[in-house]
Nucleic acid binder design. Structure first.
Length: 753
DNA sequence: GTCTAGACTTGGAAAAATATTG
DNA sequence: CAATATTTTTCCAAGTCTAGAC
């Protein structure tokens, strides 16, 4: 369920009820001490472990341990962390394309006009496409050809036994097709990272697309499906009925039991009603949506059990839509759009205790939509009988279409896919800024340690906040409008009630206990020993304040970021998260992985390093409902395999005996060999499964995705794969490889973040 | 300066697609 | 082959940060 599963006890807000989606963390943690290798531990230990003494020992145990290590992440009591900072790291300026010898000059014609509209037909995209493909860069093609050829071979080697009944040839053919497709794709890839960058602020020179895709209009319910009010059938008008269905669809969801949600919904629903409807329907509790709900469930079910043919048809029509609306032409290249579909109307599902949950998110009309494209491109047609709100040609932004959403009044955008140049370039730049921070972080740390002693209150607060941001990877914490959103905070917006100071806690001096709701109402709970100076300052900051008062009353993110950017151009609070995440990954990989490990162990090490980062960044998830079950399944599989192994071993022994008895019988000799192989195979499989179980258990409440996608410099992972001889697709799936194509292409085994 | 709208990144859940199993 | 488990993709909310209005 999406809402707020677990009522935590994070300290909450100014007179607001809190129902935090607390998950892991605190001792009383929901799932009670079930397993000895609870990953929750890691979280707790983050601060509890006096890192230094334990570290050495833990690292040694690494190989077999089940507990998951985070030492170097949190240990980080000041001395340690600050030593670890690196001085060297000459600007190797990976971001400057010049460095890569083969930079390609943008061809003269490229800041282009693009194809003129006049001749364009509805199949424009296709045509452009072909044109694109006809742009051969031969030398590269050959190179890639080789590259790709290798990959699939490896893959095959990894799954050697495809022993399904299907004919081998069929499988081979399918595989070959896949390979070919991949190859083609690779050759078409726009290697933008080898090109010059545009002047500042210009995002594109040509942009053409078909506009966003609108969801289908609402159709009346079938006659036999009824809404009841006060026990009587009421035939609703189109508008009210549509909104009623939104609610009915969510009946299984916890949302619909919450007062705030129900009230907001009812208020907005009534606005959609006709006068008579509004007069009649005055109490949500008298509404009976069950028939609508049932109908909806049946529809979902029907979709699930569709025949293969039907599914294929569906897939086909979807593909056509993607083909038509899912791509744009950006500076001569066909790029995938990320979210080309206009968000359908529905009920707003805010997270946590959102004051606006349940409000009606209205249907977007073309009249609400601003289109952005090149002047000389073929302007997208609005749906028949409609017009756009505006068509503009702003090449200093990256969006293709935008509209204002009615619940929060915020802008929504249609933008490109992560694999696009526009997103990729920005991503690359982000990691380069983080690397620049690496080379000066020592100085910055020294400075804020100094600043903590400053006579200026503002400077001191800034220094302490920065200390937290650096040490704990907290988010900046912008101010939010009260009552508009759930009550969540980040560093600068921490309130007195969110921390508790302990002169002595669990054998440690000067411990700060954090307990607050962060982004998405995810609880942050941590007990952190800090320096005396920080501790004393915190006491001072809290003096004479109410629990609901700001801890850093002289500070906000704007001030902080201004200061940061004066230390290093481009430096902002969130760069510390990126930097600390990436550097942690690199260190952890270094510490945890061994060349002599088998592939499964290497992967486990990678995941553990990734996990260390996720813990640092407080990326949590609700364990899947099926978690325990699937864990048990795996365990029984392991047990089964164990038995099998024992059996195989005894058979081997027997066979060996036979050989001894009738020596030099070549047939028996062969049997022994075969049995040996069987044992070995069994052992390998068992081991693989055990590693898998460990990994899964440790991952119970940790979400790796966000850090992998947004915080970890992909070049670290690519280099690691090369060094460890792990195929990249063990780490990154297809879309991740696409997103990080720039990194995959440019990174050698020697990359250092 | 301060405030706010705008643009873009980050985030977990849910849905859909695929793989595996009985 | 269907049922189930797992992985991938989609969805869209919720952050960060900047620039420009005032």
């Amino acid at each position: 369920m999406g809402g707020e599963k677990n009522v935590g006890q994070a300290k909450g807000g100014k007179a607001k009820a809190k129902t935090p989606r607390q998950r892991l963390s605190d001792k009383e943690g929901a799932s009670g001490g079930d397993s000895p290798r609870k990953s929750t531990k890691a979280n707790k230990e983050r601060t509890e472990a006096t890192a230094k003494s334990q570290r050495a020992e833990k690292v040694k145990v690494q190989k077999k341990v089940k507990a998951f290590k985070t030492e170097s992440v949190e240990s980080f009591d000041d001395d340690v962390r600050f030593n670890l900072a690196v001085k060297e790291e000459p600007e190797d300026g990976d971001f400057v394309p010049e460095k890569r010898g083969k930079k390609r000059k943008r061809p003269e014609d490229e800041p282009m006009e693009g194809p003129s509209c006049s001749s364009a037909t509805p199949t424009l995209n296709r045509k452009l496409n072909e044109k694109d493909e006809a742009d051969p860069r031969t030398e590269k093609n050959t190179k890639e050809g080789i590259k790709i050829e290798k990959k699939p071979r490896k893959e095959e080697a990894e799954h050697p036994v495809t022993t399904k009944k299907k004919s081998k040839e069929e499988i081979e053919a399918a595989k070959a097709l896949k390979i070919k497709k991949r190859e083609e794709e690779e050759q078409q890839r726009w290697r933008w990272w080898e090109e010059d960058k545009y002047e500042d602020g210009i995002k594109w020179k040509f942009l053409e697309h078909r506009g966003p895709f609108f969801p289908p209009e609402y159709q009346h319910l079938p006659d036999n499906v009824n809404f009841y009010y006060n026990g009587k059938v009421v035939k609703l008008g189109l508008a009210a009925e549509e909104v009623a269905l939104f609610f009915a669809q969510m009946l299984d969801h916890e949302y619909t039991t919450k007062d705030v949600f129900r009230n907001n919904f009812f208020k907005d629903w009534r606005k959609e009603m006709t006068l008579e409807e509004r007069v009649l329907i005055s109490d949500l509790n008298k509404c009976d949506f069950r028939e609508l709900h049932t109908m909806h469930k049946e529809k979902v079910e029907a979709r699930k059990v569709m025949s293969k043919e039907e599914k294929l048809v569906m897939k086909g029509t979807n593909q056509k839509i993607v083909e038509e609306y899912g791509f744009c032409i950006l500076d001569h290249h066909r790029e995938r759009i990320g979210n080309f579909k206009i968000e359908p109307p529905g009920l707003f599902r805010g997270r946590g205790e959102h004051p606006k949950q349940g409000m009606l998110k209205k249907r977007i009309q073309p009249e609400d939509v601003i289109i952005n494209c090149a002047k000389k491109s073929c302007i997208p047609e609005p749906p028949a009988g409609h017009h756009w709100k505006e068509v503009r040609h702003d090449n200093t932004v990256t969006w293709l279409a935008s509209w204002t959403e009615n619940v929060q009044g915020s802008c929504k955008y249609v933008m490109l896919n992560p694999s696009s140049k526009l997103k990729g370039e920005k991503d690359w730049e982000k990691y380069e800024v983080a690397r620049r921070l690496k080379s000066c972080v020592n100085g910055i740390r020294q400075q804020y340690q100094q600043d903590i002693k400053s006579k200026q209150m503002e400077t001191r607060q800034r220094a302490v906040a920065l200390y937290f941001i650096d040490k704990l990877a907290l988010r900046a914490g912008n101010e939010k409008e009260e009552g508009e959103t759930a009550d969540t905070v980040g560093c600068c917006s921490l309130r007195v009630e969110h921390i508790t100071l302990h002169d002595l806690l669990e054998d440690k001096d000067c411990v700060v206990e954090f307990d607050f709701l962060g982004k998405d109402c995810i609880r942050y709970y941590n007990k952190v020993p800090v320096t005396k100076r920080v501790f004393k300052n915190l006491k001072l900051f809290m003096k004479n304040k109410e629990p609901g008062d700001d801890l850093f009353d002289r500070l906000n993110t704007c001030l902080l970021n201004k200061h940061l950017s004066s230390l290093l151009p481009g430096l902002t609070a969130k760069v510390f998260r990126t930097f600390n995440a990436s550097i942690t990954l690199q260190e952890q990989l270094q510490q945890l992985s061994n060349m002599t490990d088998n592939p499964a162990e290497k992967l486990l090490s990678y995941n553990r390093a990734n996990r260390a980062v996720a813990v640092l960044c407080n990326h949590q998830r609700v364990p899947p409902k099926t978690f325990d079950q699937s864990m048990a399944n795996l365990q029984s599989k392991i047990d089964g395999r164990r038995e099998q192994l024992a059996l195989a071993k005894s058979e081997l022994k027997l066979a060996k005996k036979e050989v001894k008895a009738h020596s030099s019988d070549s047939k028996l000799q062969a049997v022994v060999e075969r049995k040996k192989k069987a044992v070995q195979r069994c052992e390998e499989q068992l081991m693989k499964m055990e590693v898998q179980a460990t990994n899964r258990e440790e991952n119970k409440q940790i979400a790796l995705g966000t850090s992998k996608l947004n915080y970890l410099d992909p070049r670290i992972s690519v280099a690691w794969c090369k060094n460890m001889e792990v195929p990249l697709d063990k780490i990154y799936n297809k879309s991740q490889r696409d997103k990080f194509a720039w990194a995959v292409d440019m990174t050698g085994a020697d990359f250092i973040f």
